[in-house]
Computed example of a mutant assay.
Amino acid sequence: MSRLPPNQLTALHISRHKSGDLCDGGGLWLAVSGGSRLWELRFKSPVTGTRRQRSLGSAADLSLSDARSHASDCRRQIKSGLDPIIEREKEKAARKLEIGVTFE
């Protein structure tokens, strides 16, 4: 994970940034390219040991405080030895099993 202290950005920083990546600290990044602005968490997976990045959502849909909250939840998973990407895939698979297969 990033060694920067968390909460480095403000809403003004985010609104004025036009291209490239901005770090909020603690592995939370705002990735801006073209017209898209995405929140992502960059971390080292405790399961595979590789560097990974998980998209948290669009900056148009997630505020800075919401992105920080999602990143905090993912950091808790990492501290407990879980990979947030693998856990999200497991949740999606479980939801598909609950719904069942339909051939409509």
Rank of each mutant, 00 (worst) to 15 (best):
L97W: 03
L4D: 06
L30D: 07
L97H: 10
S65R: 05
L38Y: 02
V32Y: 03
L28D: 01
V47P: 06
E40G: 06
S2N: 09
S33N: 15
I85V: 09
T48W: 07
E104F: 03
C23Q: 03
D61S: 12
S36P: 01
C74Q: 07
N7L: 00
S19N: 06
E40R: 13
L38N: 02
S58W: 05
R51H: 15
E91M: 14
A59H: 02
G49W: 12
R88W: 05
L82Y: 10
L9R: 05
Q77P: 06
A31E: 12
D83K: 06
D21P: 00
R16S: 14
T102L: 09
G49A: 09
R88K: 15
E89T: 04
T10P: 03
G20I: 06
Q77L: 15
G20T: 06
R75C: 05
S80R: 15
T102V: 08
D61M: 08
I78F: 10
A94S: 15
I99R: 07
E40S: 06
L64Y: 02
G35W: 13
R95K: 15
P46L: 11
I99A: 07
R68K: 05
T48Q: 07
T10M: 09
D24E: 03
L41P: 04
R95M: 14
P46F: 11
S65C: 02
V101K: 11
G20V: 07
L12K: 09
C23P: 01
R16D: 11
P5T: 01
K90W: 06
Q77N: 08
P46G: 10
Q53C: 09
A71K: 00
W29S: 00
S33K: 15
L9A: 05
G26F: 01
D73H: 14
K96S: 13
R51F: 12
L56I: 03
R52T: 01
I14W: 01
T102H: 14
V101A: 09
G20A: 05
S63L: 07
V32S: 06
S63D: 11
F103G: 00
D73L: 13
L82A: 12
R42W: 08
K18T: 14
A67V: 08
S55A: 15
D73C: 12
K44M: 14
